[in-house]
């Protein structure tokens, strides 16, 4: 009697699909979500340049650089990417943390709502200190 392995050694395995990320909308969104990290890194670099300019007394030069059209375009992209990152990341957070109260699981929307409120609050505080502060 033939064993299956003689007939089909290991069975048929398709080759790697180089365009797997284009095969479904969900995969594409996933890859875009992960690629926001490139803009996260860029934003950090941009902020370090700003800090360097502030400490080195060259803020006007930095402002001129930031006002170049391609810089603005890049930062608009970075804004979109970091917002997309914030929304997706804060939405996924309750999946790792199961909070139980009284034996019942805290619903995901409650945690997500809390996260997004915190995001707004932190943003407001940061904007306040950057723009005005306690004078």
């Amino acid at each position: 009697m033939k064993t299956r392995d003689e007939v089909t050694p290991g069975g048929y395995r398709p080759r790697r699909d180089a365009f797997w990320f284009a095969r479904s909308r969900a995969y594409t969104v996933f890859v875009l979500r992960e690629l926001t990290s490139v803009f996260v890194a860029w934003t950090v670099v941009f902020l370090l340049l700003l800090v360097d300019a502030v400490l080195g007394g060259s803020l006007p030069e930095f402002a001129a650089l930031a006002a170049r059209p391609w810089m603005i375009a890049l930062n608009v992209l970075a804004l979109a990417a970091t917002c997309f990152h914030a929304i997706t990341f804060l939405n996924l957070a309750p999946r790792a943390t199961v909070v139980r109260l009284d034996g019942y699981r805290l619903p995901a929307w409650l945690i997500q709502g809390g996260n997004h409120s915190l995001w707004l609050a932190v943003s407001a505080v940061v904007a306040f200190f950057v723009l005005r502060g306690f004078q």
Binding site: S24, A26, Y27, F30, E34, L92, R95, A96
Partner: peptide, 19 residues
């Protein structure tokens, strides 16, 4: 796992493996 989350969408039994 890089948390694609598609396992959970595919699961017919609402196991939520991603979680």
């Amino acid at each position: 796992c890089t948390f694609v989350g598609e396992c959970t969408s595919a699961c017919p039994k609402h196991v939520d493996p991603a979680e």
